[in-house]
C-alpha cells in the first residue's frame, strides 16, 4: 500500500522551486518540480510530503495540488523557524522533498456523492487538492458546495479560485465568510460553523469534508451532527507533530494510529474509536 520512490525513505529528493505565489500575508504557495521538470512522486489528494529547506529543517505539509506530471504545490503558512526561512526563499531555490505519506482522501468511495467542503484558514490547503480533483473528474461527483472562512479578506487563501474559477464550475456553490466586518467586504461575516448552520446543506447523499483550526473543527462537527450528518458522512484531516513520516518515530500517534501512516484523513466514525487526543 505504501510506496516510496527512494531507496531510503528518510532521505529526501532534491527539487526546484519553479514558482512562488503570495496567497495571504503569511501564506505562500510553492510550486516544486524535479530538476529538469516533472513531479518527484505522484500524490493523491490529502496526502502529505516532508519538505525540507535542507540546512534549516523539515516540515510535514499537505500537498495542496499535483499539477499532472508537471509540479507539486504546497501552500505553507509562516508559523515557525523553518517556515519563516521558507518564506524568504526565491524561485530557483532547491528544496528536499520526501513522500508521499498518509492515506489521503477517499476519492473513490466518494464517487457519486454530493460534496460539502468546509475549510478555515490554511485548512483549505488540503481540501483544495480534493476540490480540484473533483473538478478534474467532474462527472464522478454530484453537487459541490464549498464553505470557507478566514480572519479577514487578506487572510483568504487561493482568492482567484475562490472568487473566480470555482464558482464557474458546473453545479458548484462557493460560500466565503470572514470573521469580522471590514471596509470593502460585502460578503458574509461570521464564523464558519455558524455560516454552515445558516446554509443548512442537506445531508442527503452528501459527504462533508472539513479542515481548519481545532476549535473550528470542533464546532463544525457539532453543527454537522445537528444537520443530520452521520459519523460516516463526515471526513476530516488531522494534524500532529511529525518527524519521520513513516510510522517509526512515535510522536504522531493518537491511540494506536499514526497520523503520518494511517491518517491524516479519518471519518468521524473512525475518530470516535480513537482516544480524544486530537
Amino acid at each position: 500500500m505504501h510506496k516510496c520512490n527512494c531507496e531510503n525513505p528518510l532521505v529526501p529528493e532534491i527539487v526546484e522551486v519553479i514558482d512562488i505565489i503570495d496567497e495571504t500575508p503569511d501564506v505562500k504557495t510553492f510550486k516544486v518540480s524535479k530538476i529538469g521538470g516533472g513531479v518527484p512522486f505522484d500524490v493523491m489528494p490529502g496526502q502529505l510530503a516532508m519538505v525540507s529547506l535542507v540546512p534549516v529543517g523539515e516540515g510535514m505539509f499537505s500537498v495542496s495540488w499535483q499539477e499532472d506530471n508537471d509540479h507539486l504545490q504546497f501552500a505553507i503558512k509562516r508559523v515557525g523557524l523553518m517556515t519563516d526561512e521558507l518564506h524568504r526563499i526565491e524561485v530557483g531555490q532547491k528544496l528536499g522533498v520526501r513522500g508521499p505519506y498518509g492515506n489521503g482522501f477517499p476519492v473513490e468511495a466518494c464517487k457519486g456523492k454530493n460534496m460539502l467542503f468546509i475549510g478555515g484558514g490554511i485548512g483549505l490547503a488540503p481540501l483544495r487538492s480534493f476540490i480540484k480533483y473533483c473538478f478534474k473528474h467532474r462527472e464522478d461527483y454530484g453537487k459541490i458546495t464549498i464553505i470557507y472562512g478566514s480572519r479577514s479578506y487578506a487572510d483568504l487563501c487561493f482568492k482567484d479560485e475562490l472568487f473566480d474559477k470555482w464558482p464557474k464550475e458546473k453545479e458548484t456553490e462557493v460560500y466565503v465568510t470572514i470573521d469580522k466586518p471590514e471596509e470593502g467586504w460585502d460578503g458574509h461575516v461570521g464564523f464558519v460553523p455558524s455560516y454552515l448552520e445558516e446554509l443548512n446543506i442537506s445531508p442527503e447523499n452528501t459527504i462533508a469534508v472539513t479542515c481548519g483550526p481545532p476549535v473550528m473543527i470542533k464546532f463544525v462537527l457539532e453543527v454537522l451532527e445537528k444537520m443530520g450528518y452521520t459519523d460516516d458522512q463526515v471526513i476530516t484531516t488531522l494534524e500532529m507533530r511529525m518527524k519521520c513520516g513513516i510510522g517509526k518515530c512515535g510522536r504522531c500517534n493518537i491511540g494506536s494510529e499514526y497520523i503520518c501512516l494511517d491518517g491524516p484523513v479519518f471519518t468521524l466514525a473512525q475518530l470516535k474509536q480513537l482516544p480524544p487526543e486530537w
Binding site: 528518510l10 540546512p55 534549516v56 523539515e58 518527524k243 519521520c244 517509526k248 518515530c249 512515535g250 510522536r251
Partner: peptide, 24 residues
Amino acid sequence: CHCFDIQVKAWGDEGYRFRCWDSC
C-alpha cells in the same frame, strides 16, 4: 523505547541531518 527526533546541524552552507533518541 525507540522514539526519535530528526534534526539538522549546519554551519554556513554545509551540514548534516541526524536522528537522535527522543522521549515521549
